[in-house]
C-alpha cells in the first residue's frame, strides 16, 4: 500500500504529501507519524501540503488529529504551503483547523517550530 515517507531532521520530522490522499493513506500517515514521534522523540512535525489539491473534511480531521496527538506526545505540528484555492474551500466548507498551526512556506514553518521549542525550553527554566 502507498505510504507517505517521513524524514527526520534533528529534532524535527518532515512530511511532504505528494500523492492524492485516499482516506486509508491519510490514516496510515497518522499512525506512522505518531509512532515515529514516539521512537525518535521528535519535538516538532512539519507537514508540507503544497502539492495537495484538495482538503476535505476527512483529510482536515486527519490533520487536526495529527496535531492533537503530536501535542500529547510533546511535539508541535505546523502545516505549510496550503494552496489558496484549498484555503478558500476549507473555510467555506466550515473547517477552520482549530488548534493547527499553519505557515505560508517551509521556511516560516521551521522558524515557528524552532521558536516554539526555544520558548518551551525557556519557559521550563532549563535555559533561563
Amino acid at each position: 500500500m502507498e505510504r507517505i515517507p517521513i524524514l527526520q531532521m534533528g529534532e524535527f520530522l518532515l512530511v511532504t504529501i505528494q500523492v492524492e490522499l485516499s482516506d486509508q493513506v491519510a490514516l496510515t500517515l497518522q499512525d506512522d507519524l505518531t509512532e515515529r514521534i514516539r521512537t525518535t522523540g521528535a519535538r516538532g512535525v512539519l507537514i508540507d501540503i503544497s502539492a495537495l489539491e484538495l482538503v476535505d473534511s476527512f483529510i482536515g480531521r486527519m490533520i487536526a488529529n495529527i496535531a492533537g496527538m503530536a501535542r500529547i506526545l510533546d511535539a508541535r505540528t505546523v502545516v505549510v504551503g496550503m494552496q489558496p484555492a484549498v484555503a478558500i474551500t476549507l473555510v467555506e466548507l466550515g473547517l477552520t483547523l482549530t488548534g493547527v498551526h499553519t505557515a505560508l512556506n517551509p521556511d516560516r514553518g521551521m522558524q515557528y517550530l524552532r521558536a516554539a521549542l526555544a520558548e518551551e525550553v525557556h519557559g521550563h527554566g532549563r535555559l533561563g
Binding site: 484538495l54 484555492a85 478558500i88 474551500t89 466548507l93
Partner: peptide, 9 residues
C-alpha cells in the same frame, strides 16, 4: 482553480 476545488471537495 477555486471553482474546481470547491466542486471536487
Amino acid at each position: 482553480l477555486v471553482e474546481q476545488t470547491k466542486t471536487v471537495t
